[in-house]
Design a protein around this nucleic acid. Structure first.
Length: 145
DNA sequence: GCCAACGTTGGC
DNA sequence: GCCAACGTTGGC
């Protein structure tokens, strides 16, 4: 038999204000549902996520850096915090912390990262990340996926 | 705490 | 269907 072709892992970046929900909290919880997204484009990105996809975990406002990698452990389902409305959540778990946090300043100073949606669509809380960008962030963070 | 960017809403 | 007003996000 031929091996079943595995769907390629997709890469994302999810933002949270550490005040509201930090990487440390995710590590403590072991798993969480990524709720509260109330933007159509961000929601559609959530819905495009598959189990096993990897997400850069970014602290907005405070920190302003990528601090870890989260893994999607359950694909999109209705957001329980908005009953009757058309919003979605996914479940994520900590995959690996970055050895070095990668600051927004550093990302901005890296010419090959200038096309990142994080920079171009700074107000979107869930954005896709190209694999080459994802790999470079990990490299800057001295971490292997 | 300010402000720019920008998505969303509602009046017309 | 346009567009002004408004609210929110997030960098500075």
């Amino acid at each position: 038999m031929f091996p079943v072709p595995k769907a390629p892992v997709q890469h994302w970046l999810i933002k949270s204000e550490p005040f509201k929900y930090s990487w440390a909290q995710l590590e403590k919880d072991g798993r969480t549902l990524w709720d509260g997204v109330r933007n159509f484009e961000a929601r559609n990105n959530l819905r495009a996520m598959k189990e096993g996809d990897l997400c850069l975990f970014y602290h907005s406002n405070e920190g302003k850096d990528v601090v870890g990698i989260a893994r999607v452990v359950r694909a999109a389902y209705p957001d329980p915090t908005a009953p009757g409305e058309d919003w979605s959540v996914v479940d994520v778990a900590p995959h690996k912390p970055l050895k070095l946090a990668v600051a927004l300043d550093l990302i901005k100073s890296e010419p090959s990262l200038s096309e990142m949606q994080l920079l171009k669509r700074s107000r979107l809380s869930v954005v896709p990340v190209e694999k080459s960008h994802f790999d470079l962030i990990l490299k800057l963070g001295k971490t292997k996926a």
